[in-house]
Simulated assay, not measured.
Amino acid sequence: MDTVFLQGLELRAVIGVHDWERAFAQRLRVDLRLSVDTAPAARSDALEDAVDYARLAEALTRTAAESSYQLIETLADRLAMQALDNPAVQRVQLTLHKPGAVPAAQGVGVTIERSQQEAL
């Protein structure tokens, strides 16, 4: 299995449990590693045989912008499931970063893994 990745995609979402967090869309960052068999795309050199990461980035950006979850775990799960909407993606590892959530920390976030079996 091969890996297609999308790293450092900036998102905006209403996220958090405190009222002050929910008053505005916060900046988030997502990294994805998608387990995919890239051989068909390599043979055909055709986008329809590949994971269209530009289209995926747009979909993830839209989903985050339209969301209003309390927990980053919930948003991370929804984004991972969206990546698995593409049947070529067998597994996804997703890290969702919430910069500035803890001022004394360099970073805060969650990393999850999901597979096609969990998406069914």
Rank of each mutant, 00 (worst) to 15 (best):
R22W: 07
V51F: 08
E48R: 10
G16H: 09
D52R: 08
S35T: 14
D37G: 11
A50L: 06
L56R: 00
L47A: 07
L34K: 01
A64F: 01
T61P: 00
L32G: 05
R33V: 03
R29A: 11
V30M: 04
F24W: 14
L34M: 05
R55F: 06
T61M: 05
A41S: 07
A64R: 00
P40R: 05
Q26M: 10
A41N: 00
E58M: 09
E58Y: 08
A23H: 08
E21F: 03
P40M: 09
A54L: 14
A65S: 07
D19F: 10
A41C: 04
R33K: 14
V51I: 13
Q26K: 10
A42E: 12
R62Y: 07
A39K: 10
F24V: 14
E58H: 11
L47F: 03
R22G: 03
V51K: 04
R22K: 14
A46F: 04
A50I: 01
R22P: 01
L28W: 02
V30W: 00
D45T: 03
E10K: 13
L60K: 07
D31F: 04
A13S: 12
D45K: 09
A39M: 15
L11E: 00
R27E: 10
D49A: 15
E21L: 03
L34W: 00
L28Y: 02
F24E: 14
E58A: 13
G16L: 07
T38R: 10
W20V: 04
R27W: 10
L60P: 00
A65Y: 06
L32R: 02
D37R: 14
R29G: 03
E48M: 10
E21I: 03
L34H: 00
R43S: 12
A54F: 14
